[in-house]
Design a protein around this nucleic acid. Structure first.
Lengths: 251, 251
DNA sequence: CGGCCTCTTGAGGAATCTCAATAGGGGTGG
DNA sequence: CCACCCCTATTGAGATTCCTCAAGAGGCCG
């Protein structure tokens, strides 16, 4: 695990960051620049810890590139991944407002993270309610995703769970601008199991079922979707909950 | 299922409402009065639907008395309860800011609900960022609870799941001012199963295990905790995530 | 080349489910 | 006030899903 690279000024590549967050956070250019003016960029290596479970307060963190997860480790050593993050996602808006971190956050792949210290963000939120509103909305959006996870964990068999997760990631990646049918997928089968509440062995078998049914293929860190319709059906997937468009139109 | 009782002005019993939400939402008296001045009270019967899954926009709803649940019904007719609400809880802060309702909300028992229309609340949020902040915090708090549900659904056996849920409800009831060792518990075993992702039959058996181990008793709508320590241990329960005190101190 | 991690496959076992039947309780209509 | 009915709680038995343990193959990195 490589040591954390030093913080760096972000002025150099400000405009790609703006577009990344413009898509997601629905902020005016002026609001975005206000945010970025107090942000610091930091690089993390693959698998590196970003936030430690139980730490008291952390800056607000925004994921610019790479992928990350929020995890909880139980007493028996097993892990549950409670959230995954793709570029454009705030990592901890909820923890930020609660002032407490209920889970660890670490990377799946090398990642660039913007860090915005609370001391400087709090006054900004008072001045610019639209920013607070955007962070509130992001918190709610993440909660809506967790609600779907709750539903398949509670009520769906392994195959539908896995299919649903793949649908979710495909949709979120698509919204991030990537090709929707064939893209990089940095999760191992063990990590999929830690999301789905399944053993690695069972993930492997269910993955083969999906492969045999010609729905998807997942190998060497790449996910290929052969039959999007069929996959949606196997998952009972409805992408509406992922779409912030309505909220955007309404606000 | 009784018809919805008509809306009524709330001036009559304003002060108990103030104390209910003062405890939870960390608002100044002035903020609370501003909120209440645009709120309407409404009574719901036991089992009545408050918000329909998929409806576009709803007013912000605050639960004053009674208990409620958020549910999702699957294609095969099974249900998953994704959230439960006790007096003082906002029912839909996340849905409110997203402008979309991802689940139905209905009552467990007769309930009094405050309703605050978006048209009147939006301007208020602009004027009083502390209210928006409080709603953001409530959204994050609910998400933190859902995260715990995710963890036991994914990684814990039935007995620990049930124990954890009972711990959560006991703690939240306690924070609401009720006796912590023996209180009204309006959920049936079927409903417990819909929360825990278990069949009714298995809930029954696990409940008997807990009873035999002299940890709790649940009968005729009453929960009695014999051995709080033991119950916490069976659940691997740590109440910290439920405590908004730190957030309150910090803000 | 060696070591570690991931992926794969097999076999037996545990947790939980479904189906089915019975008992108890509360509410409702006669 | 009683009879009836529906919903909840309880118990049994067999079926299914998923887990654990174990072992081997493939790939990547030092």
């Amino acid at each position: 695990m490589a040591p954390t690279l030093p913080a760096q000024p972000i002025a150099t590549n400000l405009s790609p960051l703006l577009t990344t967050f413009a898509r997601r956070m629905v902020l005016s250019v002026s609001d975005q620049q206000a945010l970025l003016s107090i942000a610091q960029a930091r690089n993390f290596a693959k698998g590196e810890l970003i936030v430690e479970e139980g730490s008291e307060s952390a800056p607000l963190l925004l994921l610019c590139s790479g992928a990350a997860r929020a995890t909880r480790t139980l007493e028996d050593g097993s892990q549950q991944i409670v959230s995954i993050f793709l570029p454009g996602d705030p990592l901890n808006p909820g923890d930020f407002v609660l002032g407490r971190c209920g889970n660890s956050i670490s990377t799946f792949s090398p990642a660039l993270v913007l860090s915005i210290p609370g001391a400087e963000l709090y006054p900004l939120l008072q001045q610019r309610p639209t920013i607070m509103r955007a962070l509130w909305r992001e918190t709610a959006w993440k909660a809506a995703i967790q609600r779907e996870w709750l539903i398949w964990l509670g009520r769906k068999p392994a195959e539908a769970r896995l299919a649903h997760l793949l649908c979710e990631i495909a949709c979120r990646s698509l919204a991030g601008g990537r090709d929707s049918e064939d893209f990089e997928f940095p999760l191992t089968q063990r990590e999929l199991g830690d999301i789905l509440g399944l053993s690695t062995v069972h993930v492997n078998r269910v993955l083969q079922q999906l492969r045999n049914r010609k729905l998807v293929d997942l190998s060497r860190g790449r996910l290929t979707i052969f039959d999007r319709e069929g996959l949606y059906e196997a998952a009972e997937f409805d992408s509406e909950y992922l779409d912030p468009a309505e909220a955007r139109a309404r606000s």
